[in-house]
Design a protein around this nucleic acid. Structure first.
Length: 223
DNA sequence: ATCCGGACCA
DNA sequence: TGGTCCGGAT
């Protein structure tokens, strides 16, 4: 029986964050050069490691297509360009759907896109097939610098293994819980997610987690 | 060979 | 609830 921690453990989320920051330092996310490139990366990184995504991004750049109008004009080339990111057919469709939306609604202009409220943009993004909550929130946080906490598989795994949250809470519930228990800081949200991803990849593996070597190893709930 | 990861669909 | 989409790391 897991018990979700809420009010009584408000400092817990921050303690974890501080431990990770101390261990790993700032993660310098997101590595994309422009908001558009960050959107592309956010879509491509679904179910994939960043290394494979970066490969695809370089391909797009080498083709001179890291631009919404150009990429849309050559959308038939997208599957081949992004193949290494995996799920390339679905992701190509998603990319194309985003491009259509971005061009038709905002003239492919970041400033126009970024003018809208966070909730409105989130709703619009979620209506695009292939963009779910994590991808939408990644775009909001990292491309548009909105104060939104991104939930992913690593977040669920790390926090639930530490008995801080229940693993199966719905995305939005989990997001609200975390945001309520953290300072309302965009920079902390940015850094925290990046630190959780790093921790998940390196230590909090799905099978055989490396708790002894993990910076959070001493903060484990009593077994 | 098996593992890993978001979103959608039936 | 379980299947499907995918390539690259291990």
């Amino acid at each position: 029986m897991r018990r979700p921690i809420t009010i009584s453990s408000k400092p817990t989320f921050l303690r974890l964050y501080k431990a990770l920051y101390k261990a790993f330092g700032p993660q310098q996310w997101w590595p994309g050069e422009t908001p558009f490139e960050i959107v592309v990366g956010a879509i491509l990184t679904q179910n994939t490691n960043w290394r494979n995504v970066n490969n695809a991004i370089q391909k797009i750049k080498q083709a001179g297509l890291m631009d919404p109008m150009k990429l849309h004009a050559h959308y038939r080339r997208i599957p081949a360009l992004i193949r290494t990111a995996g799920f390339y057919r679905s992701k190509a469709k998603c990319l194309r759907a985003f491009l259509k939306y971005y061009i038709e609604k905002y003239g492919a202009r970041t400033e126009a896109f970024a003018k809208k409220g966070t909730r409105a943009i989130r709703k619009e993004l979620l209506s695009i097939r292939g963009i779910g909550p994590e991808t939408a929130d990644s775009i909001l946080l990292y491309a548009l610098r909105r104060r939104v906490f991104v939930i992913d598989a690593y977040t669920r795994r790390i926090l639930s293994r530490h008995d801080i949250i229940e693993h199966d809470l719905p995305y939005d519930v989990l997001q609200q819980t975390i945001q309520k228990n953290l300072p309302a800081s965009r920079k902390i949200y940015n850094e925290y997610h990046a630190l959780l991803v790093r921790t998940g990849k390196e230590f909090c593996k799905k099978n055989e987690p490396l708790c002894n070597a993990c910076p959070l190893g001493t903060m484990l709930p009593r077994a």
